[in-house]
Design a protein around this nucleic acid. Sequence first.
DNA 1: CTGAAAGCGCTTACAG
DNA 2: CTGAAAGCGCTTACAG
Lengths: 341, 341
Amino acid sequence: MLMQNVSMNYEGENVAGIREVATTAGVSMSTVSHVMSGKRHVAPATRARVEDAIARLGYTANPAAAQMRSGRSGAIALVVPTLENPFYPLVAAGMQDILVPRGLLLTISESNGPGGQDVLRHLIARRVDALVAAPFGLNNKLLGELREAKIPFVTLGRVSAAGGDLVHTDDVEGAREITTHLIERGYKKIAFIGGEKEAGTTRERFEGYARAFGSAGRPLVDDDIVFSQFTRAGGRTGAALLLDRESRPDAIVAANDLIAIGILDAARERHLSVPGDLAVTGYDDIDAASLVNPELTTVENPAREIGRACARLLLERLDGDVTDVTRTVALSHRLIVRQSS
Amino acid sequence: MLMQNVSMNYEGENVAGIREVATTAGVSMSTVSHVMSGKRHVAPATRARVEDAIARLGYTANPAAAQMRSGRSGAIALVVPTLENPFYPLVAAGMQDILVPRGLLLTISESNGPGGQDVLRHLIARRVDALVAAPFGLNNKLLGELREAKIPFVTLGRVSAAGGDLVHTDDVEGAREITTHLIERGYKKIAFIGGEKEAGTTRERFEGYARAFGSAGRPLVDDDIVFSQFTRAGGRTGAALLLDRESRPDAIVAANDLIAIGILDAARERHLSVPGDLAVTGYDDIDAASLVNPELTTVENPAREIGRACARLLLERLDGDVTDVTRTVALSHRLIVRQSS
DNA sequence: CTGAAAGCGCTTACAG
DNA sequence: CTGAAAGCGCTTACAG
């Protein structure tokens, strides 16, 4: 026996389809469809009967069928290096702020895991409508496939992958501001501890530090500039170098909060009071920044806003409101002064 | 003109469909389908031609079409109160560990936001295949709709919603262990600070505290038991109560890490050394637990493992390997001894 | 203002 | 071992 045209879910139970709604309301499937989409006028009385039937049967359109016609999956993907970094879930939350009201589904994947390199390919095969990626672990070939598949995408951070939009925060400016804050507070010897030297984040934040020095007419002192790693241990090691010298700094600008927390460790080990003997600043404003003692002066990296900006950019492309030009959105940071400076 | 049966993406470009593959390989669409699914034998030579055509055209099946026939969306949802709590993204990561290899899409939503109550309804309409929910903000009516829609679901935590499976950690046992650890360390007056009194988490962790006392033959002292809130401020307030008494405790078991961090604040304000004057323990092992000074002794709440367990439970239901019986999975905690005890 | 029917791209009985 | 064709549940030209 051939299958009949009666909708079922996978438990084998009947579920109301557009056909049942049409029968119940005494109209055609076309009319039901048009009542739902609003794409053509329906007489008020007819509309009322249809809406009544929809409500009585608890009908909701099967998205798979709609997608098949429209060619859209209604899914947007976010690919991040790891969900263990609390920054990225906040980006996701920001995207949801925009996507949920539009009825779009957000799917989130990690690219650092074992099958990380397959993730993008999988999402392409899944026909996601658009994609946001933190491009750290992703190679250019994959980004190229994205372009080929004509899937709009935006990258997070400073690597502007051709063919996609870009959202980032102005780290140069944020680092300039926090350094200027220390200068204005009267600190005389302000050092810098960066993360991995080749990281864009390190470069930009160092650049901001350097600019603040330039504006203040202070020369950069090579010995006061250390590159380490973006971890607590990296901060401790870097600080040891600076603090065990004859003339130690009275302030340190750290390239992120974890480094700053490591500096606090090093200060404690040497019985230096913060900020009395040594001021310390971080970057990002992760949760821990306000949990450590003393609480860290830092720059807020507006993760949620970043997510919102990404989603808006993608929707504009999906809506066709945009030409081929690549767009860059820079979001503002915010200096947060706490106890450590 | 009627639309032709040529696949296009929404940019209007041609994309290889199963029809093109069939033509290229000189076989029927049936055969292409069977080569891909492996559901019927195909002669090796035929198979080779088809696979060659698939590779040459870069064909990947349109999932919307497949979903329409199968009735499955291939999407699994995770609904959490907020993505700002770093626990939940880790649950998501654990789910991905299991779902990605199966080609399933994970979608994550917040239920605390403005449209939080609509989230579940939206996911039902979207026909997600299964769902994991932290049921805190969700009322029972919504859970009932889930049941009606025959969508398998598992809840996180202790509220066992009828019709779904349950994954939780054995908080009673974890709290018992950490309390016993303090007893064995020789602390004499061990107090307890809980979160909101009505929260299941508070109840279970207090229960573990009480059991450790029972096993050690110690009586519970009413004055040493305080209920507050699951926040840093709650910990500080609760600790103030305990520490400003004539006979203050020499150790405090906190119902979570944030409370413990608040206790550290209170101790610092009173110039009490930790653990010299006062031992403090937390619960959950959030990132901050090892960032504060002194680092917190705590109980690890294996978020990623929890996510894995949820995904496995759901897949078993989707694969039909399971009857109607509700299952409960309890995951083990792990005591982590650091500097604060 | 509304309906009948083609078509979206697949999968799967049915038939050989 | 393989193919022709029905059907999944919708949307949308086409026709009136």
